[in-house]
């Protein structure tokens, strides 16, 4: 059995992605999140052979190598990686706090790149034509007050993904991004109802983006159905304009 790593699998979109992979494919899921919540336990009960929950704080970039060598590598060959974990440090630029900014880049960018490194190395070793999907954000494409720094982390990953696709395409390894619009998840929980309403009014469908729709797009990009798709971004954002 081959495995798909899903970061931030304990809640929100990550949980839905893990659930859909387990429910609709034969792959195993290696969930990486800071906290092992009830959702992970539920999946462990339902899929004891195909789900592994690893507790790890992705703010610790240096430890990713050991995480791979000591734990992930021993579980089995990697087919896919979904870089979904993210922290949102939102503020206007004139208030920029370097410590907060560095931590956000460690989680959203450096650890995501490090996990890509080890996923690709694993794919090379096992000659796996694997698939990497990064979860980006609509904020990297449409400006929002207070999200410039968060958006910068997502823009970095989109550029990384396109170049990953070019670099490893000859080995059959694909890399794509899914760009969700605003969803009702913990990452947008600091927004007021009024702010959310204004954001949703900017979308064609005038509402929040569906979590299941984002997850099923990730599943599609992971699957063989998307075998000719690499180096691109797929917007799942209710038509944000």
């Amino acid at each position: 059995m081959k495995w798909i790593i899903v970061t931030g699998d304990s809640r929100g979109v990550g949980r839905e992605i893990a659930y859909q992979i387990l429910n609709e494919t034969d792959f195993g899921v290696i969930g990486i999140s800071r906290t092992s919540e009830e959702s992970a336990d539920e999946l462990l009960v339902k899929y004891p052979d195909r789900f592994r929950a690893l507790s790890y704080d992705l703010a610790n970039v240096e430890g990713v190598k050991q995480l791979y060598r000591d734990k992930i590598h021993k579980i089995g060959p990697i087919y896919g990686l979904v870089n979904n974990s993210a922290m949102a440090y939102d503020d206007i630029i004139s208030n920029l706090n370097i410590d907060e900014l560095e931590t956000m880049f460690q989680v959203n960018v450096f650890s995501a790149m490090h996990l890509s490194k080890y996923a690709i190395r694993d794919m090379i070793l096992h000659k796996t034509q694997g698939s990497i999907v990064h979860i980006s954000s609509i904020s990297a494409h449409t400006g929002y007050k207070g999200l410039s720094m968060y958006a910068a982390t997502k823009g970095a990953m989109e550029a990384f993904s396109k170049n990953t696709a070019r670099e490893w395409g000859s080995k059959g390894i694909r890399s794509n991004c899914v760009v969700p619009g605003f969803m009702e998840t913990s990452i947008s929980s600091t927004l007021t109802d009024e702010q959310k309403k204004r954001i949703y009014q900017r979308t064609s469908l005038k509402k929040e983006t569906g979590i299941a729709s984002v997850a099923s797009t990730v599943l599609f990009l992971l699957s063989d159905k998307a075998k000719s798709i690499t180096g691109t971004v797929v917007h799942v954002d209710n038509g944000t304009i």
Binding site: R121, D122, I124, L125, W168, S170, K171
Partner: peptide
């Protein structure tokens, strides 16, 4: 460079 990457991971294994 890609062959060297493969050599690296196979030797590491």
């Amino acid at each position: 460079s890609l062959m060297l990457a493969e050599l690296t991971v196979r030797l590491e294994d």
